[in-house]
C-alpha cells in the first residue's frame, strides 16, 4: 500500500477536472440558455470522444483488435453490456492466439 506523491497529484487533478464537469451544468443553466445548435454540439461530444478513444485500438493496432471491436459492436446490438464485453475479450484472446500477436 504505497502512495506516490506524483500519482496522488495526478489523481487529484483528474478528480478536480471531473468535479468541474459535473457542477458546470448547474452553472450553465443558471447563466446560459442552451439553444438547439448548442444542444446538438453538446450531444455529439460523448460519441465523438468515445470513438476517438477506441479508434487507434480498433483501426491501427492489429487484426485481432479490429476483429474483436467489430464483434463487440455487433454483440452490443443484441446483448447487455457485460455479455458484449465478454465476447470482445474472448474474441481478442482467441484471435491473438491464432495470429500469434
Amino acid at each position: 500500500m504505497t502512495l506516490d506523491p506524483n500519482i496522488l497529484l495526478a489523481i487529484v487533478a483528474m478528480a478536480a477536472a471531473t468535479v468541474l464537469t459535473r457542477i458546470a451544468g448547474l452553472l450553465v443553466i443558471r447563466f446560459v440558455t442552451i439553444g438547439p445548435q448548442q444542444k446538438r454540439a453538446l450531444e455529439a461530444i460523448p460519441p465523438a470522444v468515445l470513438m476517438a478513444v477506441i479508434a487507434p485500438t480498433a483501426l491501427v493496432t492489429g487484426p485481432a483488435e479490429t476483429l474483436a471491436t467489430v464483434a463487440t459492436a455487433l454483440a452490443a446490438t443484441r446483448l447487455p453490456l457485460l455479455a458484449a464485453v465478454a465476447i470482445g475479450v474472448f474474441v481478442v484472446a482467441v484471435a491473438r492466439a491464432l495470429i500469434g500477436a
Binding site: 506516490d4 495526478a10 477536472a17 451544468g25 460523448p46 478513444v53
Partner: peptide, 28 residues
Amino acid sequence: HPASWGALAFSALLVNIRHVLMSASIGT
C-alpha cells in the same frame, strides 16, 4: 511513469465533458 498530471487531467476533462450536459439537464 512518472504520471503526467496535466495530460491525465486534460483527458479526464475531455472524456467527462458530457457531464456538463447531464448536470444541466438533471439540474432543472
